[in-house]
Design a protein around this nucleic acid. Structure first.
Lengths: 189, 189, 189, 189
DNA sequence: GATGAATGAGCCTTCATTCAT
DNA sequence: CATGAATGAAGGCTCATTCAT
């Protein structure tokens, strides 16, 4: 990979780690260059601006998560199993890569507004599953956007608290409870 | 203006509104001064730094919300009613003062870490109610921090989507659904 | 002294002490007001500006020292005794009021340029004594300004080192040595 | 400009000249940038702060003078010649580069306190020469720090007056007189 | 005369971005 | 493609000074 894509990857890694640890505004391009072991100017061979780096990083990681979820539930037909499977996956990924989720969680503000259409997002996947389940009569009617948001909230808010040290165990420990609660939100069992 | 408390209030108002609209990092002290109709230096007679202004604003508003919730549930004895009452209050306040909640929601990251002990917070109030209900056998056992986080998530995540335009109705329209879902999280009916 | 001259004196005292300790540029009007136990605005009832305060303080103290020297040598006729007497006085005053001399020493730059004519200064007094002594044939000819500067240097430079901690004894301990050296400068014994 | 040492030198030159002419506190970073023909931010690629620029400039020039003196007297064995040679060198350098000495003279206050150990300073060199001479029995006993300070004073105080226009001739004109006086301080001839 | 909240010019410093090498 | 010195706009903050009370 002498074409520079290795460099790009180093930038992404360093940026992700720094953004998660210090926040986007508090991370300078010099920090990123230092973390990636490259010159400051080199960042601009790969991204037009710091802002584009942030957006690009967010979008690719955000949709990547969406796709992982989508793949995971493809073969499940019941909403209960789909919810369970998604939450279990989220818990595992979260424990395995905290910086990634920390970045996603604290960058969503200011990025969510500009998510382009046609991208697979975590909420989108949840929403889709809910809509199907409603069509199949598995769960009650109701605004699918709202239902998806609430299910997401059940999983994400404890994650935020975990990031900020209010919940100290591995996130997978909460897996069963989270599934139970998400079902409760949808009125299942 | 014998005492400067009116000026301080103008600063708070302008800062809140700007922080909510543009974000903290994107709001300059010049913006704030302009919005408040005062000189830039005047901010520093009331706050030692921009950072202190942000922290002070966050903490006072955050704990103020906590106290409103605490007062609201004081006379309710059942957890079901307490949850319902809290959510209804939140919905109303949210609709009445979006900038306030927008500020709180997007500033929590970077502020939550440094909330001092001994302050009444929204989560704290929910947690407290849950603990009591568990003691009274009204709901199942389980980590009260986790339960509180999940309940909070049910209410807050849709609010975030509302702020970013993904849910367009007045938040109070969702009130009943939110209550239902929160109950579901706790395994109530 | 209910006419405010007591206040003025408090300002002078506080300013002198602070200027000596931190330097003029590093001392704020707020510092001075704080040190004097008055309001910031009150300074401006007594001085038109901070700069005028500095100048006024310097000039009055500087010329006061000159006058003390002048009085001291009035009754001495020989240059040797005059030198001795002046140096002994300086040593005593220096030990008794370090802040004053510290202020004078580190403020001379930037103030010496604007000492008005017709003021009795320490150098002036020394210069006068030297001129008289030359007229009386007590010491060799030579530019009296230069001779005065050199004599002053002998006494002042060790004082500077004393202020900065390089000479640690009471300044009066050096009295005899200083006199000896000053005589040496003038070619006396 | 592959390396920035030329730029650093431009900064040093401009700063020195401005500090000497207007004083450190009265010289802004904008002034320096303007004088050096560079952007304001460029200063901060070479110095961490204005204060560090001042300190660095002072220390390098101060010790440079010390080293010039040290080199000059290396081959002289008698204290009389050493004193003479040092003073002649000082006079010549002073006439050749007034800004440098003006800067040194008016910045010593506030910098002398933080001269690190192990640096060759003008006073150090004089003190050393005096100590040797005492050991060799060439001059009388006495605190070498005090003697060095007095000798320095003889040379420096007239220089200060020269800077402030009280002595108007080239400083080299005073060379012989200064040597004579310095000898007198040490009790020589 | 004294107060102290308010002012606003201007300072030091940061940092995303450019460009010659 | 990579470098890193240089840029310069803009930000947070200080502080001498004013003025209504």
């Amino acid at each position: 990979m002498r074409d520079g894509s290795a460099t790009r990857e180093k930038i992404n890694q360093a940026a992700l780690e720094l953004f998660a640890r210090k926040g986007v505004a508090e991370t300078t391009t010099r920090d990123i260059a230092g973390g990636a072991g490259i010159a400051e100017g080199t960042i601009y061979r790969h991204y037009k601006s710091k802002d584009e780096l942030v957006r690009s990083l967010f979008l690719s990681l955000y949709s990547e998560q969406g796709e992982l979820l989508a793949v995971q539930i493809r073969d499940e037909s019941g909403i209960k199993e789909q919810i369970a499977v998604m939450i279990q996956l989220f818990c595992r990924l979260f424990d395995e890569n905290r910086p990634l989720f920390t970045f996603l969680l604290l960058t969503q503000h200011g990025q969510l507004e500009r998510v382009p259409d046609g991208i697979v997002t975590p909420v989108g996947v949840i929403r889709e599953a809910i809509t199907c389940a409603q069509a199949a009569g598995q769960i009650r009617k109701g605004d699918p956007d709202l239902l998806a948001a609430m299910v997401l909230g059940v999983v994400v808010q404890p994650a935020v608290f975990s990031v900020y040290g209010r919940l100290k165990q591995p996130y997978q420990d909460f897996s069963a409870e989270l599934v139970q609660a998400a079902w409760g939100v949808l009125g299942l069992s």
